[in-house]
Every structure is written in C-alpha cells, then in structure tokens.
Amino acid sequence: MMKILLMVIGSISLGLGMIGVVLPVLPTTPFLLISLACYMRSSRKLYDFVLSNKYLGPYVKDYVDGKGIPIKAKKRAIFLIWITIGFSVLFVIDKIFLRLMLLTIASIVSIYIWTRSTPESKNIADINQQ
C-alpha cells in the first residue's frame, strides 16, 4: 500500500515538474526531486526514467550525483521565488503578519538554495590540460 501511495505522490509531483518546464512560475526542480524521492522507495523503473529522460534528467542529475545546483538554476529559482512572493505581498495579501511571514520564508528558502554547492564548470583551459 505504501509503494502505491509513493508512486501516486511521485507521479503527481512529476506532472507538476513537467508543467514547470514550460510555465516559468512553477518550479521544476523541487517537484522532480520529490518525485525521485518517492520513486526511489517505490519504483526503480520510474526513478531511472526520470534521471535518464533527456528533458527532465538535466534538472536533477547534478543534485542527485552530489554535485549541487547549477548557478543558473539557483538564480532562476531565487528570482521566481521573489517575483511570486513579491507579487503576493504587494497585491494579494493585506495582513502585515502574513506579509512578514512570506518574506521570511522567501528569505530562508533563498539562503538555503544559494548555500547549496554549485557544480564546477570546466573552462577550455582545464579541458586542454587533460
């Protein structure tokens, strides 16, 4: 029963991650990581599918391999967090407590993302020396 539940949660998360590939407001990587975590415990076949997929794999491969989050992905995620939270704080939420709570959450998540390791990019000089 638990495997089925994990597969359902993983599939929903995978669907949201796939939507996030084309919708810039919806984050892709967190949903794909959730789906991988669920699939790791329920279906090796689905886990391998996500990692080997040419469209989805690049979003999570470096993180899963322990290399970290690419700087471009960090910048994009933080930018989108602040755009969506900023819009909510300015135009949707009117209570000061909720505004402060959202800004605090955005700050903590941004710091968390920024402090994750970043894969080293190889420049041409490094490649030529090898």
Rank of each mutant, 00 (worst) to 15 (best):
L26K: 00
L32E: 04
P30A: 00
D48M: 12
R44N: 15
V21W: 09
S42I: 02
S35M: 05
K54F: 09
Y55R: 11
S43N: 12
V22L: 08
Y47K: 09
P27L: 05
M40P: 05
L46C: 07
L32W: 01
K45D: 14
P27Q: 01
P58I: 13
S35Y: 04
L33T: 11
P24V: 00
V25W: 01
R44G: 14
Y39Q: 05
P27K: 00
I34A: 07
L33G: 08
V25C: 00
S42N: 09
F49I: 05
V21P: 05
G57R: 11
C38A: 06
V21F: 10
V21H: 10
L26G: 07
L36K: 06
Y55V: 15
Y39P: 06
D48Q: 15
P30D: 00
S52C: 12
V22Q: 03
L26I: 13
L46M: 11
P30N: 05
R41C: 10
L51I: 12
S35G: 06
K54M: 07
F49A: 12
K45G: 09
I34S: 03
L51W: 15
C38K: 01
P58K: 05
V22A: 10
L36R: 02
R44I: 14
L56P: 10
Y55I: 15
S35F: 08
A37D: 10
S42T: 04
S42P: 01
N53E: 09
L26N: 04
V25Y: 01
T29Q: 02
R44C: 13
S43C: 03
L51H: 15
G57W: 11
P24C: 01
V25G: 02
D48N: 15
R44D: 15
L32M: 06
L46N: 11
K54G: 07
N53M: 06
I34L: 12
G57H: 11
K45E: 15
A37T: 13
Y47M: 12
L36I: 06
S43G: 12
